[in-house]
Design a protein around this nucleic acid. Structure first.
Lengths: 154, 154
DNA sequence: TATTGTTATACTCTATAACTATA
DNA sequence: TATAGTTATAGAGTATAACAATA
């Protein structure tokens, strides 16, 4: 009985629109903070991920983060130039590399993590812990359902 | 009494990380769908926003969407080339322009909106309506708190 | 002089695919 | 030939700032 088809849903009807909007702002804000330390968001993700393990191959890292090998290669270039990361060619199979965070990188990481904490708090600090957890779970579940690469479910 | 400082929070500790991860996937998936119609995500946003009003100045649109005038200018170029949008210079003040969606653009919009609906459903359809609304409200609240440009709270 | 819109420039991120070197 | 990593190319998105036209 609708007189108008209402075929054209508004932008704000889509959850994807809101996520993109907020996410862009959060990431942009974070990127400004990181810029003071001379690092980009993608670089932070790589460094943080490498920090866990002693060393990791570029291809493994690429899969884990959900990036292409080419992208990792370029990021590694930049991080190497900043002396935050080293490449070491394997002796056994010289096609393999081991990426590792340098001492300088390890010294820098806590500061970057503090910026990440600070940025997250600025945007989501007003939410209750339960609410944050709820949203996080929802996002995590979406990642799982869609079989997205990096399922870093902690 | 902590033995370890635990100073370095993991990536997954941050809600911003999850939002960025999911949002990137959702947007990418949407961009693939839109590509079949020869449109990008940013172009969809512009078209959808212009669709509401008869016409709008680039600067007003820029503020509403949260983009720079330069970005709008480039988008308008592309949309004009695709005959989805027109620029009309004001007679009163020749610095002003009116951007408007063409008939072709109006014909295309329902199809794009359907893709948006479809994409949103693919990622968020498994959530209850209440849960979706909850997350949407949270995002909306964040936008409001941070006084972000486009507050299309509808 | 202030404002509107355009243009030039640049950089990040991403993806594809051709390429090199190893095996 | 198969794999690991690199490089070239491209395009979207974004931002800054210089610029032209107009008021």
């Amino acid at each position: 009985m609708k007189t108008k088809p209402a075929a054209i849903s508004p932008l704000e009807a889509h959850l994807g629109y809101w996520l993109r909007f907020v996410s862009n702002q959060v990431s942009h804000s974070f990127s400004l903070k990181l810029a003071e330390r001379g690092v980009t968001v993608a670089e932070w993700v790589v460094l943080r991920e490498l920090f866990e393990c002693a060393a990791m191959a570029p291809s493994a890292l690429a899969e884990r983060i959900g990036m292409t090998r080419g992208a990792i290669s370029k990021l590694a270039d930049r991080l190497e130039a900043k002396a935050l990361l080293t490449r070491t060619i394997s002796d056994e199979d010289r096609r393999y590399q081991a990426l590792a965070v340098t001492a300088k990188g390890r010294a820098l990481l806590p500061k970057l993590a503090a910026l990440a904490d600070q940025n997250d708090a600025a945007f989501f600090g007003h939410l209750s812990a339960a609410e944050r957890e709820r949203i996080k779970s929802a996002m995590c579940e979406i990642v799982r359902r869609h079989g997205l690469k990096a399922v870093p479910v902690d």
